[in-house]
Design a protein around this nucleic acid. Sequence first.
DNA 1: TCAACATCTCAATAGATATTGAGATAATGG
DNA 2: CCATTATCTCAATATCTATTGAGATGTTGA
Lengths: 120, 120
Amino acid sequence: MDEKQALDAFTALSQETRLRIVRFLVAAGPEGSAAGEIGQAMDGASSSRMSFHLSHLEQAGLVLSRREGRSIIYSAAYPALSGLVEFLMRDCCQGHPEVCNPAVAALSSCCEPAKGASHA
Amino acid sequence: MDEKQALDAFTALSQETRLRIVRFLVAAGPEGSAAGEIGQAMDGASSSRMSFHLSHLEQAGLVLSRREGRSIIYSAAYPALSGLVEFLMRDCCQGHPEVCNPAVAALSSCCEPAKGASHA
DNA sequence: TCAACATCTCAATAGATATTGAGATAATGG
DNA sequence: CCATTATCTCAATATCTATTGAGATGTTGA
């Protein structure tokens, strides 16, 4: 993840519909969801609008697509999301580990909610 | 961190100069850096340009400011960055913890580089 | 109070982006 | 092959955003 990739990713995430799409796909899991289904979930957005935003997200590397019959299935690109998090926080601990530990805790509790932290 | 706050944060981070400013301040640590110093680090950007971007970042909640003599010192808002990471990855583990563990590992290794993971 | 310094504010302009609507492309089943 | 479904492509328009340059505000020390 270099600066240009990170910038493209943040640009993609800076638009309401696209941010919702990414979160919808993150919640949908690795299986993903068809373009039409995603459009339904986005207040019934038009197909051209969905295509525009989904293409934008795919170009930014945040989602993947595959054809399945007549539908095109989109899914979250989890490694890209992890890479973005890493990029954003890469230099977070320059002598001050306490400043980024909350982020680690938040992310850890997401993966292991029973581990003790009560998901603030 | 609600959707609007996250959107504002991503919008703020989607601009090259602002992304560099945030990373510069993250690396600068909690003490922060004066507006003029930051401007120097940004290829000598003009004061009005710096003011525009710094105000934008402050409104988005990503940086804090305080006056110190003639200068205004800006610093990274670490809790906001943690919150943004949490928001982005909040639903990352819907039955599939393996998809977000890389992000946890990346962030953990940032805080404890000697812990074993070789910072991919 | 004055001069020098650091930063902010404002209006104008140039450039980038999102939405819409019509139509094209691709796959399926009869 | 044709009708249907699903999605993409393209051009036009409206909106938003970044940069610039001039000047205002606030701070310091003499």
